[in-house]
Design a protein around this nucleic acid. Structure first.
Lengths: 341, 341
DNA sequence: ATTCTATTCCAAAACGTTTTGGAAGTCAAG
DNA sequence: CTTGACTTCCAAAACGTTTTGGAATAGAAT
């Protein structure tokens, strides 16, 4: 049923060794033998048993990705875009991608450890880094190759790609201020996530540079989903003195916030300005279209994947740490403050 | 560095066989030996080498999914939702998920064949079945376990889960007709996809049952993306006698169509009705929110995955073919026809 | 005739696990 | 003292590949 090297050896009258070497293009096999072997292999529809190969070669040509699912699902376009980038680049470089989902916590670490010790993958892509990220220490202790999308808190040294969230949020906050907004709210991500820290900091710096006093009642934390954005926006709009602009720290929450505003018959882009972060495909097609910061997730996935594979293959990285500047995309969801009128 | 059975054997003074059997819970090893082995294994942080195990056991505890990427990427929420369902259920049942992306065609088949012959996965989940689907014949010839999301054209027999697209589209078409719409357009998927066939058929049957004559100029084919929906809707709205309702065959195209209408200052839900299919998370939060057919993609992913694993493990399937009825979700993007007024 | 080099091949070991088919020991029954 | 049953263990084979370390042959150089 399944064709092995032995079958080819028997059919060609050569040894298993020779067949193997012929197929792998060694030059200590004569041209005619090689041709014969190749022909027979094709005839029988041979392709090598992956497990035997990997057992022998001690590497797997597979990279791992364990998606940290907060809550029951991950229909987050953030992940799917990133996943596409990683997966396509991996396929292109001849690597497989092994995907799992684990909620952050003990289970998650067990999955990492099992994959490492069981040599199931050659390296990991780490996404959405956290403060005191146990995954990082786990991988570093095992001296296992990995590249992260996101930085770590302490000055821990590891290869990563990240977007400059501080820069981005500062940009958009100052932009909102330049439109005349004085009461600018922020819907921030859960603070244990590293990017939350950077984005929130950018928001605060932006306010400061615009000369707007900080007001902690205008900073709420959302769970990164549309529903979360909706709920937090409602709280903001219920304030005695509600904000005229909301800078959400991701697009999904921004879209939720837009729904909340529209439910109150506010014209988003006129009565209130709302901005996001990520520039997911949805952002362009929402109504009004969403002002946001563009983060090339698909490309980032590709970069991270490529760096990891270089690392695995022992090639030196040109750049170990890459920080990308997000680009402000102004669309219709933001406009001049109407409080003056 | 890496701990093997041999290391444990050496440390405990037992044989590799005994260690293996102790760890695997055979009862021909004494309680104290077992305890000793378990303790040492834990001490050394042993976990088995996956490749060796799989080579020996001849099965991989991994299921494969090759996403047919049309175009450069697959940020389609359809896939990410489905993927989440498959991945989570697989993890729950102790299986890994191996993901690849391949454009339909020769490359794709090669990937399937290599995975089969290389025994890389125990079975496949097939998504988005096509007419004369080469993947199906490939898998059937190899007698390889698979479960599809989607049916096949001919009366080819294989296990699948599918949504009843005909029923769904008939439902929504008749619903639109009941609102007074007489000129109802359809943006259909590429006809080589099986679900395109069923959904289009449902649309036609719906028109017929509502007593509305068919008009082929009102049926256009879109590429399932927002951009595609936008373009096709523009063509429809440019017609001398444009439709008052557009039934798009998926949500993404419906959202694109909404954009097209809104660009012309049409009030979606009043001046024109637009409906989708899938009920992706975005549909609830678009403006206006999208009337659509709910298809529980996450659950479907789980079902397909579970059926596949049953198949792999040689358990009989209670139901080999499952056809789910989509549910009509009426939201704000559809309303009474305004042509009477 | 001998040595050297090049070419072509292959037996055996190795990767780390599980399974097969006993072997050795103990104990109780006959 | 045998026999049989039971418990506990293990050597060796197997999974399918790659790599190691030659062996065999032929031709060329000495």
């Amino acid at each position: 049923m399944v064709v092995t090297l032995k079958d080819i050896a028997k059919k060609t009258g050569k040894s298993v060794t020779t067949v193997s070497r012929a197929l792998n293009g060694y030059d200590d096999v004569s041209a005619e033998t090689k041709a014969l072997v190749l022909r027979v292999a094709k005839e029988l529809g041979y392709s090598p048993n992956t497990w035997a190969q990997r057992l022998q070669k001690q590497h797997t040509e597979t990279i791992g990705l364990i998606i940290p699912t907060f809550g029951p699902r991950f229909s987050d376009p953030f992940f799917s875009e990133l996943l596409a980038g990683i997966g396509n680049r991996a396929a292109h470089l001849g690597y497989d991608l092994l995907v799992s989902t684990r909620a952050p916590g003990e289970e998650e670490l067990i999955a990492y450890r099992a994959a490492i010790q069981g040599r199931r993958v050659d390296g990991f892509v780490l996404v959405r880094t956290r403060r005191q990220d146990a995954r990082v220490t786990c991988l570093q202790e095992a001296d296992f190759p990995f590249v992260a999308f996101g930085r770590a808190e302490e000055k821990i040294d590891f290869p990563f790609v990240d977007e400059d969230g501080t820069y981005g949020m500062k940009l958009v906050t100052k932009y909102l201020a330049s439109l005349g907004h004085q009461r600018i709210a922020c819907i921030a991500p859960p603070p244990n996530l590293m990017f939350a820290h950077y984005r929130l900091q950018g928001f605060k710096e932006g306010l400061m540079e615009a000369g707007i006093p900080a007001d902690d009642s205008l900073i709420l934390i959302g769970d990164l989903t549309q529903r979360g954005g909706y709920e937090q926006a409602n709280k903001l709009l219920d304030l005695p003195s509600p904000p005229t602009a909301i800078a959400a720290c991701n697009d999904l929450m921004a879209l939720g916030a837009m729904s909340a505003a529209q439910d109150r018959n506010l014209m988003v882009g006129k009565d209130i300005s709302i901005t996001g972060f990520d520039n997911i495909p949805m952002a362009e097609y929402s109504h009004p279209s969403l002002t946001t910061l563009h983060q090339p997730l698909y490309q980032i996935g590709g970069m991270v994947c490529e760096m990891l594979i270089q690392l695995i293959q022992g090639e030196p990285l040109e750049e170990k740490n890459i920080l990308l500047k997000p680009e402000l995309i102004v669309r219709q969801s933001s406009g001049l403050s109407s409080t003056q009128s």
